[in-house]
């Protein structure tokens, strides 16, 4: 993902796909998606706290990238993909907000944070010691909890910069804001997280 660092100004030009070029694009897209899909899933899962929903969001983002932006230069794919994914996550939160309001109106119980069982969502361990898995899992759980206390834009900036390795320009493209805003959001996010987790992490 770090290889994606560079200039992310989205170009207006579209390369015309013809014959072998289309096949080459298909191969490039497959490779790109294979590289990014796992991280994107975790990215979405942290944002929506539901793996099934996260899988749907990632698949939608993949399909939209393939349909609309595959003619863009490959170095623009990463920020574009994360922008699509971010938009999907925001739409999901809006839908959840409406749904929860409706549920409250009708006296139902809205699914809140308590419904999310991190242990139940834990993936199968793959050749690691249980102690290490547990330690890592607990630490990640703490980080996720702290991230959820951040304003959404700060969380996005932190995740894109830290987890996905996008540089400031790429993060700005993915978030649809200025580079200055990215720097501000990231700065505030990391200091807020350090304050929250300082005791455990220092």
């Amino acid at each position: 993902m770090n290889a994606c660092a560079g200039v992310y100004a989205v170009s207006c030009s579209r390369e015309q796909p013809t014959g072998t070029k289309t096949l080459q694009r298909e191969r490039q897209l497959n490779q790109f998606l294979a590289e990014v899909e796992r991280r994107a899933l975790r990215f979405a899962e942290i944002a929506v706290r539901d793996r099934d929903e996260a899988l749907d969001l990632v698949q939608d983002a993949m399909i939209k990238l393939a349909r609309k932006y595959v003619d863009k230069p490959t170095h623009e794919w990463a920020p574009l993909f994360y922008r699509i994914l971010q938009n999907g996550v925001r739409d999901w939160h809006r839908r959840q907000l409406v749904r929860n309001r409706v549920m409250v109106w009708f006296g139902g119980v809205a699914g809140g944070d308590d419904d999310y069982d991190v242990v139940a969502q834990a993936p199968d361990p793959a050749g690691r010691t249980p102690e290490r898995d547990l330690q890592s899992h607990e630490a990640m759980r703490g980080l996720e909890a702290a991230m959820h206390k951040l304003p959404p834009r700060q969380r996005e900036a932190f995740m894109l910069r830290t987890f996905e390795g996008l540089d400031v320009a790429g993060t700005a493209t993915a978030m649809g804001c200025s580079q200055g805003s990215v720097k501000t959001h990231y700065f505030r996010a990391i200091h807020s997280l350090r304050e929250q987790l300082g005791e455990h992490w220092q």
Binding site: E37, R38, R39, R42, A66, A122, D124, L143
Partner: peptide, 26 residues
């Protein structure tokens, strides 16, 4: 490091679903 670790621990069923999603995009 923690995030990468959580990515590495994704289970096979999830990876399979991701694979299907990618092929759908293709």
């Amino acid at each position: 490091e923690l995030f990468d670790d959580s990515v590495e621990r994704l289970d096979a069923a999830t990876l399979s679903r991701l694979n299907k999603g990618r092929h759908q995009a293709l």
